[in-house]
Nucleic acid binder design. Structure first.
Length: 873
RNA sequence: GCCGGGAUGGCGGAAUCGGUAGACGCAGCGGACUCAAAAUCCGCCGCCAGUGAUGGUGUGGGGGUUCGACUCCCCCUCCCGGCACCA
């Protein structure tokens, strides 16, 4: 044994010793093994924002509980960690304090890695990676070039938020109420070229394959399915003649059955017809300009006031030949579908409001029996598909949705004006960012050859690490040593692409890189396929759609790209099981900066002001008493300054307390409002565990075998322990870790009360052995130390997972709940095998039943075996 | 606005299939130990009435199904996540 067994719990000493033990034994280095089943346990890697926050502690403790419990259950576990190291916050930090993003990022990584180590996570650090490392991002570039060759990557124009003062593209996050976050200037929409990945080519597979993911939460699959948004509709055209030229205005609709109710057509501000009409119409041109202002966010588009203006251009209704006027609408997006929509005010809520506002015709073409249509106000049934029948629609009258759509599509097709088409809500993935701190897009622009890919042997295109962004555009554009190059094709001077990639690219395949042999000279290798897919992925619910969908897409692309006739990877889906952790929330305080931008303040930097009901209404700054606004509660994040650093907790109580508290606080999938009340309780429990173990260490070390027959009080304690273990194992399988922690507390409560009898030592030895193993995934350090001190063995990680024994659980009497008319009136004890009649007789005989029945005869008696009996009078 | 989720004591939460609502813990209150405090230990603890036994009531709000509803169905309110350049 090591030093003297301390009677007091000293987390620092215990934790240092355990961590040294694991490091020396390389306990968490994953080596492929054919003898054990593999378990690739992965938590979403953090953005190195500076310090860990409680959301990280929650995420990584959950992952570690799963990894450690599976290890003890006999799995060969891989649990890696790395850094999502490119991104906007590094540039923001540079703007604020002038430090280059590279330096800031590496400093943060060093600090946060120490914090993760202090938490005692069972991580294979030999596989650590950072996405800002050229050895990693070269493969982003390499795969991008393969996608370009296959046509999966292509160029088109994109609409971005433009800050006219800083002359820079803004992220959605940097747009506050339609204005730039630094300048306060109203944001404009601007069209610029960018590169896209054709994720829509995989839309069908991404949707269908959701059914192959039983290990994913239903809610995430539903969100992804809705996001992909597969719909079957009709793409059709309104023919028109303009300046003597015949042409067609195409639209797409899922409600072709309402086509006879079209009273106008709305096009996007950027639509060619709008541009045409704006010539010689200054008022319309001004309106189009207005439409081009504002943010590009969908939420803004959906909630803003719907506005429009007529173009004076008319198109022909494809079936009736009626003249239909074309309007410009601020709610129609050029980049989505055809940039034009048919408007049926009677059966689309948005069109209805629009028509009422501008006095446009509303023509009812769908009726529902028993419902009365009125122009006075919108009613839900107007847009209903299922109950409706066509009216005022000529030959389509009385047809239902299905029949009308089919007939109308057939008629449109016969005229060459349309066809049934499957469409997706999903749009192709735009990956170009006009930012410095990201992976360079490996392209060269040559005056004579056009856009030329960087040859593979020149990869990676290395990002200079000494730039300091100042908020006014991408500093790469000013770096001649980066931009100036020679065309790989013709050798003439050329310019390098300065756009970098979306950071979602980096995170779309990092899990595969972890699984690859460290230092491999290819993107992936045979080891990748051996470890993949990830068996258990753990991360925040905020990634339910984008990150998880992009990763699924990226996997399928890698599967479809072959090198030397071999696909890069052999799996279809990257993540077999997914646990979506609920967000850890905290209060958000902010105020408008002088220029109109916004600044955030940490909750511990303000004094909240409350109304009489206790709700926070505002706050004052601790530093100078100036007022700040209360923004409600939201996810802990660097940008909102509301993260809580776990370091103080770890320093004061140790990592085990921090881990236990986070796990105990709530079930993993639930949102958690941060409050540190209760940390004391977690610490108290661990201290009690330590002192109890110490007080009993002599009898436990004897490891006496259980006697054949235990005295009833001891048998009762033993039964309780095994019952708790059974429940805890069930909860662990359900990934409901908070009640596993509760079970451990209940076990200690039971063990403290074990009466001193013949066999007590054996019950204690068995009981502590169960408790320590059950608790070790949550609080590994203290369990490691006690396991050794109490003489169970050298390494609790090598111990088998505890299982309840059936013989310990038997009992001969059970308690049934007694109800009269469904109301709880007491209980009664019956022998385990008692039959129904015996139970009924016993129940009717009880004083409580007699009293509650008040002399009335039983009309019916419900007996739920083993649970309750309900007498109905 | 649209998509997904949530709401249970003063607080975090528990209740596996529709079967004792509030396990476990925090806070609080009372007591023991102590010169005192901390730590520790014992007890109480949803709300209302009652000295008490006990009775009534209670899982965001309203309605329904059922012998029985935190749990199932319908409607509503509020909160959280996502909405494609935060990660």
């Amino acid at each position: 044994m090591q030093e003297k067994y301390q009677p007091e719990y000293q987390p620092k000493t215990v934790e240092r010793a355990a961590q040294e033990f694991w490091n020396a034994a390389r306990s968490f280095c994953a080596i492929a093994s054919a003898r054990k089943p593999k378990y690739y346990c992965l938590s979403m890697f953090p953005y190195p924002s500076g310090k860990l926050h409680m959301g990280h502690v929650r995420n990584y403790t959950i992952g570690d509980v799963l990894a450690r419990s599976h290890r003890m259950k006999g799995y060969n576990v891989l649990q890696p960690m790395g850094w999502d190291a490119f991104g906007l916050p590094a540039e923001n930090a540079a703007i604020q304090n002038g430090v280059p993003p590279a330096q800031w990022t590496h400093g943060n990584i060093a600090y946060m890695r120490k914090q993760l180590e202090a938490l005692g996570l069972g991580i294979d650090w030999e596989r650590e990676l950072a996405t800002c490392d050229p050895a990693y991002y070269r493969w982003n570039q390499w795969l991008f070039l393969r996608m370009l060759e296959k046509g999966i990557a292509y160029k088109k124009t994109q609409v971005v938020n433009w800050d006219p003062v800083d002359q820079t593209v803004l992220a959605n996050e940097q747009v506050i109420d339609g204005c730039g976050w630094r300048t306060g200037a109203p944001v404009e929409k601007r069209e610029i070229p960018g590169y896209y990945l054709a994720i829509t080519e995989y839309a069908d597979e991404l949707l269908a394959a959701l059914d192959t993911l039983p290990g994913w939460p239903e809610r995430v699959k539903t969100m992804q399915a809705n996001w992909i948004g597969k719909s079957t509709g009709v793409r059709f055209a309104f023919p028109y003649e303009l300046d003597g030229r015949k042409d067609k205005l195409w639209v797409y609709t899922t409600r072709a059955d309402t086509i006879m109710g079209v009273t106008f057509v709305a096009v996007a501000a950027e639509h060619p017809l709008a541009t045409h009409a704006a010539r010689g119409n200054p008022e319309l041109a001004a309106f189009i300009d207005e439409c081009k202002r504002g943010s590009v966010m969908e939420a803004d588009m959906a909630t803003m006031e719907k506005k429009g203006m007529p173009t004076g251009i008319f198109v022909d209704h494809p079936l009736t030949g009626d003249q239909v006027e074309v309007w410009v609408g601020n709610y129609v997006l050029m980049g989505y579908g055809e940039g034009a929509v048919m408007a049926v005010p009677a059966h689309d809520e948005r069109d209805f409001e629009f028509a009422k506002k501008y006095g446009l015709a509303i023509k009812q073409v769908i009726a529902v029996d028993g419902e009365k249509f009125s122009l006075d106000g919108w009613q839900e049934w107007y847009a209903e598909k299922q109950r409706g029948r066509c009216v005022n629609s000529g030959k389509y009258d009385s047809l239902d949705y299905q029949a009308a759509t089919a007939a109308i599509a057939a008629d449109l097709a016969a005229r060459g004006l349309g066809a049934i088409q499957v469409q997706y809500r999903l749009r192709d993935w735009g990956i170009s960012r006009q930012r410095y701190w990201g992976c360079p897009i490996p392209l060269i622009h040559c005056p004579s050859c056009g856009t030329v890919p960087v040859p593979d042997e020149q990869l990676p295109v290395i990002l200079p690490t000494d730039c300091v962004p100042d908020g006014s555009g991408n500093p790469l554009t000013k770096r001649a040593d980066f931009v100036d190059c020679v065309c790989p094709k013709c050798g003439q001077p050329a310019k390098r692409e300065t756009d970098t990639m979306d950071t979602f690219v980096d995170s779309s395949w990092y899990y595969a890189r972890y699984a690859t042999t460290p230092g491999a000279s290819t993107m992936v290798d045979a080891q990748t396929s051996a470890w993949m897919p990830v068996d258990q992925y753990i991360g925040g619910i905020e990634h339910a759609i984008l990150h998880l969908l992009y990763s699924r897409f990226w996997s399928k692309v890698m599967r479809d790209i072959s090198v030397n006739g071999k696909p890069l990877v052999s799996y279809d889906e990257p993540f077999a099981h997914l646990l979506t952790q609920g967000m850890v929330l905290n209060h958000i305080y902010s105020r408008r900066a002088a220029k109109g931008g916004i600044e955030y303040f940490a909750p511990d930097a303000v004094t909240p002001l409350r109304d009489e009901s206790g709700r926070i209404t505002g706050a004052t700054l601790l530093a100078d008493g100036s007022p700040v606004d209360y923004q409600g509660i939201g996810t802990m994040s660097k940008s909102k300054q509301n993260g809580v650093d776990p370091q103080a907790l770890i320093d004061r109580y140790g990592a085990d307390t921090a881990r236990f508290f986070m796990i105990f606080a709530s079930p993993p999938e639930q949102t958690l409002e941060w409050a540190d009340s209760g940390v004391e309780g977690a610490y108290r429990f661990l201290r009690r565990l330590w002192t109890q173990a110490h007080a009993r260490h002599a009898p436990i070390r004897r490891q006496a075998p259980l006697p054949a027959q235990l005295a009833p009080p001891l048998a009762g304690v033993r039964r309780e322990l095994h019952l708790l273990l059974k429940q805890a194992n069930y909860d662990l399988d359900k990934q409901q870790f908070n009640t596993v922690a509760s079970a451990a507390m209940k076990m200690l409560n039971a063990l403290e009360k074990v009466p001193a009898l013949e066999g007590t030592d054996a019950v204690l030895a068995e009981g502590f052995g169960i408790l320590l193993r059950l608790l070790s995934p949550i609080t590994p350090h203290i369990c490691h130390a006690l396991w050794r001190e109490l003489g169970y063995g050298d390494d609790i990680l090598a111990a088998p997972w505890p299982q309840p024994e059936a013989v310990a659980l038997v009992q001969d009497e059970i308690e049934l709940v007694l109800q009269v008319n469904g109301k709880h009136r007491g209980s009664l004890r019956v022998k385990v095998g008692a039959d129904r009649t015996a139970i009924e007789t016993a129940a009717l005989a009880t004083e409580a039943a007699q009293k509650a029945m008040a002399g009335q005869p039983a009309k019916k008696i419900v007996v739920v075996p083993g649970r309750l009996i309900n007498i109905v009078v």
